[in-house]
Nucleic acid binder design. Sequence first.
RNA 1: GCGCCCAUAGCUUAACGGAUAGAGCAAGUGAAUUCUAAUCACUAGGUUGGGGGUUCGAAUCCCUCUGGGCGCGCCA
Length: 546
Amino acid sequence: MIKQQILENLKKVIKDLNFPPTDIVLSIPQNPTFGDYSTNLALQLAKLNSRNRRHSSLDIANEIIERLQGTGDPSTSLGTGSGQYLERVETAGGGFINFFIKPENLANDLQEVLDREENYGKSDFYKGKKARVEYISANPTGPLHIGNARGGPLGDVIANVLAAQGYEVLREYLDNNVGEQVKALGATIRAKITGNLLQDNQYQGEYIDELVSKLEIDTESKSDEEIGQLAVEELFEEIMADAHAMGIKFDLVVHESDLRKEAPRIVEELKKSGVVKEKEGALWLAPNDQFLKDRETVIQKSDGSYTYFTSDIVYHQDKFKSGADLIIDVFGSNHHGHIPRLQAAIQALSFDPKKLKVVLYQYVRVKRYNDIVKMSKRAGNFITAREVLDEVGVDAFRFYLLRFAPQTHIDFDLELLKEHSSKNPVFYVQYAHARMSNILVKGDQINRADKGNLGLLIHPMETALIKHLLAFPDLVEELAGNLQVHQLTEYSITLADLFHKFYESCPVLKAESKKLTKARLALVKGSKITLASSLKLLGVSAPDKM
RNA sequence: GCGCCCAUAGCUUAACGGAUAGAGCAAGUGAAUUCUAAUCACUAGGUUGGGGGUUCGAAUCCCUCUGGGCGCGCCA
């Protein structure tokens, strides 16, 4: 691959020139007049290289270029003579180094995509490493609502990306099936059945009525807690069904009722670490951390029972004990206060808190006639994930929620929902895939005596498309590190865009020559491989017809 | 009061500290002897909430103000 060779040569050159080692970024500039690949290396070196301040970034850039030109070996040389890869290298913008690659050489790199087929974009970089990804983990006191449904596709795609990079991934869900909330739900249902007036702090909403008719509970013989447990079991099943409808399956479901059994043990362990103190008859996690000093948290209540926090410490200890190298929690933003405490507990138990990465997402807000709908399970005014899912379909649902960085506050316009679904860019992307499939099916039927030559793909639209295809493996690798998986939607939209443009300007089956048809078919195939891979990571279908 | 997140075109939003801030929707003008018009080309739309600072370079980092979301010890 040309990009890798340029990187290697740059690395060698900065070593030869005695510059300090630095990460070299070789990116595809948005503006093609800045070359096929570009690096800001000289600008970075000028900053690092204070002892050599007489060198401006432009001087450094020219020095690097001069050295590159002289590397000699034709196969990897950056010389611009015949048989070599580069058309030219130039400096611009005060120190950027811009590489212009001969289009036919760039086109030959397409072979890599064709050879790897559905494995394109996968790597075994993290082979032997284990990752655990927890997501959704919604309270089973009501149906999954659209606000926190965002965590589903998000966690799912993070897991997909990690798996594509070689991690052995465990997808897991925590079912909070015990605690005060369960009693409160039980009390609500009892009140409904017995006809007593609902007090404050009880649950409302139609789903309560549905539960009442579905469960047929005998209120005489059962406590609030027992009633609540029945309800929570039912709701858990519904949440799992909703997750399934979103294309999500879990490898492991952990019930908090099981974690609570280990609560006494974990309290003892924390005591031994010296981070527990007794106050007002309860036990508190009180780590020696300035930031957490006034945020002590109860781990055992004065009545001897335990809290969710205690369960979560047990849970995370299990995750660490299982030998996971990477632990990811996808949480709604309202959990942010929980995180430093959890990290403190992990530290107290002598595990490495750096292995835990928390992805916080903001709740999706729903607008109805320009008003933001406040969503609360207790108030019963939420919009369920299922309503939206049934309305727009799973592909549009996932793609929409995955398009934006998790920390952004999405405002979802409910009244434009239907229209929104047909305008969702997912269809633009899927249409591109259908076009690719269609061309390949037809292309299969024509006589292709000539062997294709990828070097014929030198139209600017072809070059732009090829460059984008070649960037895919780097993207997936990067996402496994930074978890910014929304970039995959961006990538697939751009790929579709480039393909549609290529389609308009470069006839495939009706190209000037059979050879060109063959080469273009290869490009269509490479595009299809790459687009299908990115859609697969997103959990969105790649239709052959639309 | 303290803490976390956000503010980019009319709307929804993108952009490892990089070059002329990029898309889609909505608006306007075009494209059918053509591999799928769920497409393409073009037009219009921006002082990246305000003000300072750091930097060769800031939507991005720091400070501050404004406006919104979320959270803050016996809920989960």
